[in-house]
Simulated assay, not measured.
Amino acid sequence: MTDSGMFEKLFDVSGKVVLVTGGSRGIGLAIAEGFVRSGARVYICGRNAEACTLAVKELSQYGEAIALPANLGAVDGCRSLAQALGEQEDHLDVLINNAGALWAETLAEYPESGWDKVFDLNVKGSFFLIQALTPLLEAAASPEDPARIINIGSIDAFHVPKHETYAYSSSKAAVHHLSRHLAAQLAPRSITVNVIAPGMFKSKMLEGTLERRGEEAVLAPVPLKRFVAESDMAGTAIYLASRAGAYVTGAVLPVDGGTATTL
């Protein structure tokens, strides 16, 4: 007979050490708030130190949040962040790779600088941060309760977008595949790697599209006819980070109101 206490704590993440990149706004802030409210100690990383400080001030009313600003578009920034975290913690239970960039431009005018900015942060930054943090993740890992890496992908990686966001959609497809590759490599070390692929979240990235097309047109292909909510993202991340998600690795979970089923 299974211990009933295990079921009562299936989604418990209290006491876990969590790092959320891109955590000062949007999806990252929503996920960070979910973990803080659930009793985790959450480190917020973003490029803008002031924005990180403001986010931590907001989150601290619910629990424990600490700012660790860094530029993750450069390998040195990834290593510096890992070093800074290692000076405060001897392990890391959960890494949320959410920091990302988008660049939209016509095919004829798409700049190399825009392409590099997107890939440097979305793909290279995620990989080298994982590389730098693997020792801290291993220190938290066990077969029964693995350390968790959760990469934020996109449903744009499932289909060809109508917008000219060539680097963004390509980078998110790379994140999905890289995550599966890392899941296979890190499983023997009791570290899981999964992807949350959100649909349309009311973020800064979506502002231009909403202004041009309007909410009704934007939501037309979404079966559940609403935007991704903060609780949708936080809840999925907590599931993957808790006992409930301990045996899940190499998965890409769409959080998109059913949009992926209509593509």
Results as ranks from 00 to 15, higher is better:
residue 218 V to T: 02
residue 176 H to Q: 10
residue 47 R to H: 10
residue 140 A to F: 05
residue 177 H to L: 15
residue 179 S to H: 14
residue 147 A to W: 04
residue 242 S to I: 01
residue 225 K to F: 02
residue 92 L to T: 02
residue 148 R to F: 00
residue 2 T to D: 14
residue 133 L to E: 02
residue 86 G to N: 12
residue 89 E to D: 13
residue 92 L to M: 07
residue 4 S to G: 01
residue 52 C to S: 05
residue 49 A to Y: 01
residue 77 G to T: 01
residue 31 I to F: 06
residue 74 A to E: 12
residue 86 G to E: 13
residue 218 V to I: 01
residue 109 E to L: 14
residue 263 L to Q: 14
residue 96 I to L: 04
residue 85 L to D: 06
residue 95 L to M: 07
residue 89 E to Y: 11
residue 129 L to S: 00
residue 198 P to V: 04
residue 222 V to K: 05
residue 33 E to L: 00
residue 243 R to N: 09
residue 136 L to P: 04
residue 175 V to I: 11
residue 204 K to L: 02
residue 165 T to E: 12
residue 205 M to E: 06
residue 33 E to N: 03
residue 35 F to D: 00
residue 80 S to P: 03
residue 156 D to V: 12
residue 7 F to P: 03
residue 48 N to P: 12
residue 40 A to L: 00
residue 39 G to K: 07
residue 220 A to I: 01
residue 144 E to H: 06
residue 99 A to V: 15
residue 166 Y to K: 06
residue 36 V to D: 00
residue 176 H to F: 05
residue 95 L to K: 02
residue 224 L to V: 06
residue 96 I to H: 02
residue 199 G to T: 13
residue 161 P to D: 10
residue 253 L to V: 12
residue 88 Q to K: 14
residue 47 R to C: 09
residue 72 L to N: 01
residue 254 P to I: 09
residue 43 Y to L: 11
residue 262 T to G: 15
residue 182 L to Y: 00
residue 66 I to W: 02
residue 177 H to I: 15
residue 68 L to V: 08
residue 57 K to P: 07
residue 98 N to F: 05
residue 263 L to P: 10
residue 12 D to L: 03
residue 134 T to G: 04
residue 193 V to K: 02
residue 6 M to H: 14
residue 105 E to V: 13
residue 148 R to D: 04
residue 247 Y to W: 07
residue 42 V to G: 01
residue 55 A to S: 07
residue 229 A to P: 11
residue 123 V to T: 05
residue 189 R to C: 01
residue 165 T to H: 06
residue 224 L to A: 10
